[in-house]
Design a protein around this nucleic acid. Sequence first.
DNA 1: GCTGAAAACGAATAAAAATACAAAATGGGT
DNA 2: ACCCATTTTGTATTTTTATTCGTTTTCAGC
Lengths: 163, 163
Amino acid sequence: MGNKNSRLEVIKMIVSSQELSTQDDLLRELDKAGFATTQATLSRDLKKLGIVKATNERQEYVYMMPGQRRYQRVNDTHMSVHNIHRLGAVSIKFSGNMCVVHTPPGHAAHVAYDIDHAELSEVIGTIAGDDTIFIVLDEEASRQDVLNHIAEIVPSGQYFIEQ
Amino acid sequence: MGNKNSRLEVIKMIVSSQELSTQDDLLRELDKAGFATTQATLSRDLKKLGIVKATNERQEYVYMMPGQRRYQRVNDTHMSVHNIHRLGAVSIKFSGNMCVVHTPPGHAAHVAYDIDHAELSEVIGTIAGDDTIFIVLDEEASRQDVLNHIAEIVPSGQYFIEQ
DNA sequence: GCTGAAAACGAATAAAAATACAAAATGGGT
DNA sequence: ACCCATTTTGTATTTTTATTCGTTTTCAGC
């Protein structure tokens, strides 16, 4: 069962990207993703992940990551242009040991997911809002390395350095 | 019904003050409070109020109000041992003026809440994901102090320093 | 007051989710 | 490799939750 953790990650990804109202629905999506399992196991997984069945604005039941509804919107105060990089529709800026990635609205979670799973040695942790990701970098991390690595990770990467 | 609204208020009060794991439990509390009703109605009430059955830090099911402190998704990269500390199932890493706390999945918000309310002088602010907390530290903060204080806050803290 | 529409409700039931239990898999420690 | 302890899993089941459907209540307009 080495793939329990992968399954958990896939569950997180599915839940944060689709509106599913029963475990059976989720089970079908998991199946599509190549992680077939049973309702019993899924129930246990959801408990572990803290995923809850909540109600959306239309009073429908939807499985949600804890707090997906009221995510904290991060303010993207404009910084100097000279350290802005573009990557498709994504911008990457650095300040101190932090890296801030800006995405199209609603896509921060997916991009963060990809960054997470690259397991870059420079990355200590990430947190995603709606269109912004905060990344804490290792003190020794090279910005150019981080930039290059993220460039590889984020899809459709036409990007250019303005530095 | 004039007292539907009162009942909803009482439900909110009960849910936010007690840890109840089934609707039947809640039903009994409502009864005690003089608002006897049925499971069917309660189910509808909970849906209206957005109250969800979530898991607490002990992996038990608990009905909860939609919290104000919320998050989205997160990362789990493991890295350099030299600045990792363990605290129960929690790891704490430092980089620059940031502290990154890693928790069991789904519990970052709860731990962050506790850290917030300890009102540590070293802590400027926190933001929680699913299993990761970012803490911005005061520029003068000692990492050892932060570590000690968080050790006091986080429950079941058998912990040891590896630094 | 009465009447009709809408909302609230409970009993029964359907649907969905959690768990008991046994089996299978995994990870050490020899 | 083997053994033992622990974790993960599936089946079958129980428990819990959501909803159907018929009834009652509420309230607005007469």
